[in-house]
Design a protein around this nucleic acid. Sequence first.
DNA 1: ATAATTGCCTCGCTAATCAATGTATATCAT
DNA 2: ATGATATACATTGATTAGCGAGGCAATTAT
Lengths: 113, 113
Amino acid sequence: MRINKELSKGSNAMLVLSVISRRDMYGYQIIKVIGMSSESVFEMNEGTLYPILHSLEADKCLESYWCEAEGRRRKYYKITEKGKKVLASKEKEWKEFSTAVGKVLGGADLVGA
Amino acid sequence: MRINKELSKGSNAMLVLSVISRRDMYGYQIIKVIGMSSESVFEMNEGTLYPILHSLEADKCLESYWCEAEGRRRKYYKITEKGKKVLASKEKEWKEFSTAVGKVLGGADLVGA
DNA sequence: ATAATTGCCTCGCTAATCAATGTATATCAT
DNA sequence: ATGATATACATTGATTAGCGAGGCAATTAT
């Protein structure tokens, strides 16, 4: 992470769901894609990603299947209908959150409060 | 919090520094001001705020002084020069972070990655 | 040969936050 | 008067996400 890890807490699962929602992906690839599309702001650790994938699968937001290609064993993840709903709700929450941060930083002057 | 608490991790200290940078404030007031200016998206717990204030003071980002008014004992916090620099850096980091989230969600299609 | 990359995984730790609790005073309703 | 609510400070124990470090195994580059 180029940025403070604490900031990204809570948003990682949303980012993972988001990239998988566009095409099935395997773990290692997810890290690369998130790294590239964020221009290296996010460099997710494997110790962060794999537990997220496992818990999203346990929650029925993702399904997995193994593929063998180029002599490599890869575990692909696919988003479920539930996963799409959860993603939409997380994206909505993210917008609400980032808008609220903007308001506080912007300093709507509520000194009379 | 109306939103997932995990999302706001890492941004609370920035929000606190930001509101204090505009005028000296005491703890209870900080919670109210952040709550109002975020339109209740943030409802910071006292158990969250006070440790933040104490650690920011220990880091010389804030200074405190007691005031007696309306029969109430209040501990006011004032931002220091160092605090202003830390705030500026946190705001920069926040912009970088939220921009990066937008890029990943937006889905710059890097499927070739 | 061996180092780097790909690809999966787990475990122990840290740090931020929360809920609950404690203390004390002031104000307002009953 | 009594109790409820709001103000105002603070601490503590539990939770949880993410991190760093490590392990295992195959392939590719040097």
